[in-house]
Write a protein that binds this DNA or RNA. Structure first.
Length: 505
RNA sequence: GGGUCGGUAGCUCAAUCGGUAGAGCAGGUGCCUUUUAAGCACUUGGUUCGGGGUUCAAGUCCCCGCCGGCCUACCA
């Protein structure tokens, strides 16, 4: 087959022409495979064991770098563990194979086998005796030195980001390790992992606008869940005394540095415990993750501020923190008007129509929470703020709950769970007001069956990952964050044209 | 939703006051058998996000739109 000369500036066409030529010569890389005996890391480990020289390995990965020097070449391949150098020379591979090697492109996926050796400059290298192209890369990779910087491309083309940006690869590896560690921690405490449904008739357990979807078979609308809470508590009623779920929840609200419309939540429920028990649980959990995954109890946030996670953590009541922020020890005795004036002094122009507790809570969210950088359990939270927790026995205006704040963000709320169906009904009615169709009567019926006293907690996993990896943005911790769908005519339209696969047989 | 900044070659970035759109990497050709962002020589490559306007002349100024970053609003 006469090789058509493609435009040398059309990187796709140049690579496609190489592929066509290979297929014409009887080799189709998309039908090939490779027997990988070692990764970059295990090959290094093997070499460091010492003993006899010239250990043979067979590695595979994506070519990220090629340096051709006449009759020999160095290249690097990237596999799941990292990079390893390979050395190809004409007299070892043979004339024909070496000529083909020189035609490889950065981004191609190859298998390479041969003995390990260390180069003059001290780098462990595989001396290629055999190699095979096992997947052709038709698109060029971003620049080798600067990587991919454009944040939109990073989010839209995460695969490119992962190939060229090592920090990104490491961050997601760490995310996986943290979640795995959390699972093992909870299992070691005899919690059982469950999966509850994501399609809810009534999206309860939190106050957030849900996404709506339509179920054709039943011809009715469903909501994507906004929390895991109510189903998990029904499992407590059912006798699963210690349950947890790690799953997606969906909230139809704005996007920003700390909010993605779908995010990962961990919820844990433990019968015969309470919010104090949850304090111990989250503290131990974070210590365990620090030791097993991070190897450190200190983390540094995106602003360079160090946060010390080793315990014990500060405990402060909601009202004390408000008093501290406003400098008013008699805050609880002030009228709403006085509170509004105080809010204004703190630079908050609040709507006078807000309820009294909402005014205070605005101060909490805008002026207190952002200041809670080191881990702090905020306790004694006003009852209006959460309808699902038990009232404090000594002061029924507050709840037996905490909110764990770190780095100015709420990481985990936990409650002594309300199990009195009458009080629960009352709280629900206050919450939903007129919209009684949003009142989850099935849940109330479950409570009427009798739910054991329990502690429960929700952990925003993505926010925890931000904290533990020092990420600047929730999108850097979510593999495929929400973005507006591609415009109809994008600059980067699909290049692969529809054509009969000629080389296929 | 509002404010603000941005979108230039496949990638990372330049382009003075409105006056012929450039560089590095990647790509192509040639040389080079231990390189490290390999090197050397030559070289291809542009709907300057899209549409309109002002002007002798627009990447640059104005208007509209698209996409994104940041701030803000919403947000248990």
């Amino acid at each position: 087959m006469s090789q058509p000369t493609p435009d040398t500036h059309d990187l796709f066409a140049v690579r496609k022409a190489k592929l066509d030529q290979m297929r014409a010569d009887g080799f189709d890389p998309f039908r090939a495979n490779w027997d990988q005996t070692h990764t970059s890391a295990s090959a290094k480990a093997l070499y460091e064991l010492g003993e006899e020289d010239e250990k043979e390995v067979s590695v595979a990965g994506r070519l990220t770098n090629i340096r051709i020097m006449g009759k020999a070449a160095f290249a690097k391949i990237l596999d799941r563990d990292g990079r390893i150098q390979i050395y190809a020379r004409r007299d070892a591979l043979g004339e024909e194979a070496y000529r083909a090697f020189k035609k490889l492109d950065i981004g191609d996926i190859v298998g390479v086998s041969g003995p390990l050796f260390v180069t003059r400059t001290g780098e462990l290298t595989v001396r290629a005796l055999h190699y095979k192209l096992v997947s052709k890369s038709l698109r060029p990779l971003p620049e080798k030195w600067h990587g991919l910087k454009d944040s939109e491309q990073i989010y839209r083309n995460r695969h490119l980001d992962l190939i060229v940006n090592e920090e990104s690869r490491e961050r997601f590896r760490k995310r996986s390790a943290i979640i795995s560690c959390i699972r093992r921690f909870l299992e070691s405490r005899d919690f059982m992992e469950v999966e509850t449904s994501t399609l809810h008739g009534i999206a309860g357990g939190a106050a957030a606008r849900p996404f709506v979807t339509h179920f054709n078979a039943l011809d009715c609308d469903f909501h994507l869940r906004i929390a895991l809470e109510l189903h998990l508590k029904r499992l407590l009623v059912g006798g699963f005394d210690r349950v947890f779920e790690i799953g997606r929840v969906y909230r139809n609200e704005g996007l920003d540095r700390r909010h993605n419309p779908e995010f990962t939540m961990l919820e844990v429920y433990q019968a015969y415990s309470d919010y104090r028990g949850m304090m111990e649980l989250i503290h131990s959990m974070v210590q365990t993750v620090c030791h097993e995954v991070l190897g450190s109890t200190a983390v540094v946030n995106a602003d360079g501020v160090e946060i010390e996670l080793a315990g014990p953590w500060r405990e402060a009541s909601y009202l004390d923190l408000i008093r501290e922020a406003t400098g008013d020890s008699q805050w609880h005795k002030r009228s709403k008007r006085e509170k509004l004036v105080a809010a204004r002094k703190l630079g908050l122009a609040l709507d006078p129509e807000l309820e009294d507790f909402e005014v205070t809570n605005q101060i909490f969210e805008k002026r207190v929470e952002p200041q809670l950088i080191q881990p702090t359990f905020v306790t004694h939270i006003p009852r209006e703020l959460c309808p699902l927790a038990k009232l404090n026995e000594d002061d029924p205006t507050v709840l037996d709950v905490f909110e764990l704040c770190i780095d100015g963000v709420e990481i985990a709320p936990a409650y002594s769970e309300q199990n009195d169906p009458f009080l629960q009904m009352e709280m629900f009615e206050q919450q939903v007001g007129e919209e009684t169709q949003n009142l989850d009567r099935e849940f109330i019926a479950a409570l009427e069956q009798g739910m054991p006293p329990a502690g429960g907690m929700g952990v925003g996993i993505d926010r925890l990952i931000i904290l533990l990896t020092g990420a600047a943005n929730i999108r850097d911790t979510i593999l495929f964050p929400a973005l507006r769908p591609w415009p109809a005519r994008g600059q980067n339209e699909l290049t692969t044209e529809r054509e009969a696969p000629k080389g296929a047989n």
